[in-house]
Write a protein that binds this DNA or RNA. Structure first.
Length: 458
RNA sequence: GGCGACGUAGCCAAGUGGUAAGGCAGGGGUCUGCAAAACCCCCAUCACCGGUUCGAAUCCGGUCGUCGCCUCCA
């Protein structure tokens, strides 16, 4: 039985699906800049959720949005003298490149906020009709804003576990906004001069941030979904507001069965974030330690605990990934090496069942790797055990079967290895070493073993 | 101020009542043409104080410290 911590109840709950297919909605990025390794953490975590559920026999339908219109995008496009469309396209492409190299499986649908505006308008209209929203004149725009009326629903605050009173005390009101209540939030923003806008019953404007996820999850996954995920910092206000809107609109409660949130990446003692400027991009991380290295770094810590970033922890993860890869790839005859494979498989599943305890699951992989190495040193065939290591590593999204990096050069490397093997057999060690050193200069490491020579790319 | 999380070896990090997983780094060996890898061995009593218990890192109370959300944020 898989158990997950549900943010809504703050409890570890048994995971049960409502239908044949698990429906999962994950909040995507706002593509106005490169993604940093904090984003990598989130998408790796939910990729592992999906891979694990799939491994356990569930079909999963995964939807992830792109917020392709918002203040930051407009501001940045203006500053760079480009259009919001061009800016967004550039960073979405970059995002897909990052995810590909991180071995994150693509979502089934990637809706864009700007392409779902009619659906959002329909929801907003209905919310107004039902008394959950109201139109007001903004002093910043010639058109109207529409706000969600927080006081209209008594369970507002249930996800973040806050009372309406405490929220009203802390709420901020931008100048020019004409809200009934400081805690009310925008469903629709009247267009200011020069902003991209869409026609609506309230004039020209654009959707508020939260409404897109309500519209998209409804459209692509239905009124009740199994899993909704995202970073911890989205709990309030984003997900709180999503619940309010969606449940007010559909009356189907709960809108989401399991709310899952990952903690943040910390730089030293602080949270890594765009606004603090203390981030490193996914691309930088990939260049330093590769896809498996970066994934392993994320998964060595539990997803609900802050993840420590430093050059040292990143390097440690890379070295750990190399260790697993060595065990998985060493040449060997068929056989289980006398290792109890079922036991390792069960331990792995037990760790993952327990709220996705990836640190423990990884410990199982390292144990298995050690047993493989030991058995192989004793001359036993371990290919079957290696297949299990690769399979379980694959559940975590690791690509242990691959040499790492680009494999276009593989045939040439294999040829050099063959020549070097002949040179060594002829005791031409100087020439053999020149080949090894030359490859080392190209970031290719050769390792000689009883069964032959293997290589890996750093 | 409200809500929440955390404090485990040099570093990262599991473990939530029965005498501390795993990884990285480090030290010592074995193996190897050399190297790398691998293998073997070594390396903590869990922030502090008090309590409950036969027994606590794990439960309760308190102290100190750190961080997050409450405003855009994965």
């Amino acid at each position: 039985m898989i158990r997950l911590t549900n943010t809504l109840t703050r409890q570890l709950e048994d995971f049960q699906t409502q239908g044949d297919t698990v429906t999962m909605y994950v909040c995507g990025v706002t593509p106005y800049d490169s993604s940093h390794i904090g984003h990598a953490m989130s998408y790796v975590v939910f990729d592992v959720v999906k891979r694990y559920l799939t491994w356990r026999g569930c079909a999963v339908k995964h939807v992830q949005n792109f917020t392709d219109i918002d203040d930051r995008i407009i501001e940045r496009a203006n500053r760079l003298g480009t259009t919001t469309d061009e800016l967004v396209e550039k960073y979405i492409n970059m995002y897909f490149d990052d995810m590909r190299d991180l071995n994150v499986q693509p979502a089934d649908v990637y809706p864009y906020a700007t392409q779902e505006v009619p659906e959002m308008i329909e929801i907003i209209q209905r919310l107004i009709e039902k008394g959950f929203a109201y139109e007001t004149k903004s002093t910043l725009s010639e058109w109207s804003d529409v706000y969600y009326r927080v006081s209209a629903k008594k369970d507002y605050g249930k996800l973040s576990h806050r009372t309406q009173e405490s929220l009203m005390a802390g709420a901020r009101v931008e100048s020019g906004e004409e809200k009934e209540n400081p805690a009310d939030f925008a469903l629709w923003k009247g267009a200011k001069a020069g902003e991209p806008s869409w026609d609506s019953p309230w004039g020209k404007g654009r959707p508020g941030w939260h409404i897109e996820c309500s519209a998209m999850s409804l459209k692509y996954l239905g009124e009740r979904i199994d899993i909704h995920g995202g970073g911890e910092d989205l709990i309030f206000p984003h997900h709180e507001n999503e619940i309010a809107q969606t449940e007010a609109y559909t009356d189907a409660v709960p809108f989401v069965r399991y709310w899952l949130h990952n903690a943040w990446v910390k730089m030293g003692e602080e949270k890594m974030s765009k606004s603090l400027g203390n981030f490193i991009t996914i691309r930088d991380g990939l260049n330093k330690v590769g896809g498996d290295g970066l994934r392993l770094w994320v998964l060595t810590s539990h997803y609900r605990k802050p993840l420590s970033f430093s050059e040292t922890t990143l390097e440690a993860a890379k070295n750990g990934a190399d260790r697993l890869r060595t065990a998985a790839r060493a040449l060997s005859e068929a056989g289980d090496g006398g290792i109890d494979l079922g036991h390792h498989r069960e331990r792995f599943a037990a760790a993952m069942d327990d709220d996705l305890n990836t640190p423990q699951a990884l410990a199982v992989l390292f144990d298995l790797g050690k047993e493989i190495n030991r058995a192989r040193d004793e001359g036993k065939g371990v290919a079957t055990a290696q297949a299990l290591l690769i399979e379980l590593g694959g559940v975590l999204g690791l690509r242990l079967e691959e040499a790492g990096g680009s494999i276009e050069a593989a045939p040439f490397i294999e040829l050099l290895i063959q020549i070097r093997t002949e040179l060594r057999a002829a005791k031409q060690f100087q020439l053999a070493d020149r080949i090894r050193e030359g490859l080392a200069g190209l970031a290719i490491t050769l390792e000689d073993g009883p069964q032959g020579t293997t290589w890996k790319q750093d």
